[in-house]
């Protein structure tokens, strides 16, 4: 396999944000059945080594493409953009994030129906996330407006972290 192939080429699909995830997962399995080291358990050391390398590449491609956030970051990378660790974001977005964080903290300290409140909150976050993903899909077509695309990715990153926070709180409330 050509290790210089990008992740989309490995799956023989056009680079883009909208993917058929069911197709991707069945293609992934079809590839694994051809390359997995278990298929070479009785083969020579050379073949075993190659099988490990190939499978590792396919696994990384699949892990990246199946996650909307990682897929978006990867599309930017193909355009030559590396994600920054401390990006500058619109003030309005940051205020909204602070408000949402405060809401989450309020749910944690509220005595009544914390779980119900949290369910509603999580749904709100998921809707927000879906909206940004939709925005990204619209931007991520050639010629890509890289500045806009990058901003949306940062927003997806922020909101995804919020969702992780909500999930952690749910675990805490459920007593795990």
């Amino acid at each position: 396999m050509d290790f210089k192939q990008n992740f989309f080429q490995i799956f023989q699909i056009q680079p883009g944000f909208n993917l058929d995830l069911t197709q991707l997962s069945s293609d992934y399995r079809a590839l694994q059945k051809n390359v997995h080291p278990d298929k070479f358990a009785a083969a020579s050391a050379q073949e075993k080594r190659l099988a490990v390398q190939w499978t590792a590449q396919i696994n990384e491609a699949y892990d990246t493409l199946k996650s909307p956030l990682l897929r978006a970051i990867y599309l930017l990378k193909l355009e030559g953009v590396e994600i920054q660790h401390n990006p500058a974001l619109e003030a309005a977005f940051l205020f909204q994030q602070i408000e949402l964080r405060e809401q989450l903290e309020a749910i944690e300290s509220s005595d009544e129906q914390a779980l119900e409140q949290l369910d509603q909150f999580s749904q709100q976050i998921k809707d927000l996330l879906a909206g940004y993903e939709h925005d990204f899909a619209l931007v991520a077509v050639a010629p890509m407006d890289i500045k806009v695309a990058e901003q949306i990715v940062y927003k997806i990153q922020f909101v995804s972290k919020l969702l992780v926070g909500a999930n952690q709180l749910e675990e805490k409330l459920l007593g795990y």
């Binding site: 050509d2 023989q12 079809a30 590839l31 051809n34």
Partner: peptide, 22 residues
């Protein structure tokens, strides 16, 4: 021999991967 056949092995892999998908 393994080194000489590395590239061939990769090409066969590539072909097999392509056929797996299509």
């Amino acid at each position: 021999l393994a080194a000489a056949s590395d590239d061939f092995a990769s090409r066969r892999m590539d072909a097999s991967v392509r056929s797996a998908l299509s």
